[in-house]
Simulated scan of single mutants.
Amino acid sequence: MKLQTALDLLSTADALKLLIGVAPYVDIIEIGTPLIKIDGLSAVRNVKAAHPDKELFADLKTMDAGELEAKLAFEAGADSVGILGVANDATIAGAVKAARAFGRQVVVDLIGVPAPHRLARIREMAALGVNRVEVHAGLDEQAIPGYNVVDLLKTVEGAELPLAVAGGVNLSSIGNVKNAGASVAVVGSGIYGAPDPAAAARALKEAIG
């Protein structure tokens, strides 16, 4: 299982500073949606230039113009892009078309897809040629009393595509993510919000082996 750090920070400078200590312990660097909205695709270019050996995921959360937005991100250096699973199939197919042209990947984010429909939507994503899906509880969902990663994982048991898991993943829950057979564990505040982000990233990497 790979470890992905979600850089939901508010400046590229802060992201680059964080990565000085964190990058050695992660496999995938995610340029978070807030950072892309603030700094645009220059954030993708600058992080890729600083860490060319890492897979770079641009979390665009694209809802329309899939081919165009994916193309722009790939041209900026992204290795994979995030498209919303609630988007029209034509949007997702467009992103897949761009990914194939560049030899890159599409990750479909299931945030907003109702739990009873997730497995069916994953089957549809497989038919469209998507590379990976991300089962994702956003910050607002995580704040709802009773939320936990274990229940989130249950909604995608038997998924037909490689699975990334995001939503409150931390040192205490990453073992559950690994045992569920996920390909990628996505950790945001569990790294960037830790007192020592580098130590947190190292501990998470050690926990998954």
Rank of each mutant, 00 (worst) to 15 (best):
A78V: 09
D14G: 03
G103R: 01
V26R: 01
L19Y: 11
E69G: 02
A164T: 05
G168C: 00
L84R: 03
E69Q: 13
T62M: 09
G158W: 04
A180Q: 12
D8C: 01
H136N: 07
V150M: 09
D27F: 02
G167D: 02
R104M: 04
A159P: 00
E141D: 14
P24Q: 06
E141Y: 14
A78G: 03
E67Y: 06
L153G: 04
D151T: 11
S80E: 14
Q105S: 09
I20F: 08
T91S: 09
R132D: 04
P116L: 00
D151K: 12
T155C: 07
D14H: 10
M1T: 15
V177M: 10
K205D: 09
Q142F: 03
I38L: 15
T91M: 02
G168E: 06
G94H: 02
T12Q: 12
L161W: 03
K2T: 07
I36S: 00
L68W: 13
A194S: 02
M63P: 01
G158P: 11
A78H: 10
V113A: 02
A6S: 15
P197M: 10
A98P: 02
K154C: 10
A50I: 11
G188E: 00
E55A: 12
L7M: 15
P197Y: 05
A166N: 00
G188V: 01
H136G: 12
V186E: 12
V184A: 07
N131D: 15
D53P: 01
V156I: 13
K154S: 09
G146E: 14
G82N: 06
K54G: 03
V106N: 01
Q142C: 08
E134Q: 13
V22H: 11
D140R: 13
V177R: 11
A95I: 05
D79W: 10
N170A: 15
I111C: 04
G94L: 02
P114E: 13
E124R: 15
L84S: 05
T5G: 14
D79V: 13
K2G: 06
A126Q: 15
E160I: 06
V81H: 01
A115C: 07
N88D: 15
L3A: 06
A200W: 06
A93K: 13
G40M: 07
Y147E: 12
L84E: 03
V165R: 07
A13M: 13
N170Y: 11
A166G: 08
D89I: 08
N179I: 07
V113S: 06
V187R: 06
A203Y: 00
G82P: 08
D89N: 13
I174Q: 09
G138Y: 04
A50H: 05
A87R: 05
N148K: 02
K97W: 01
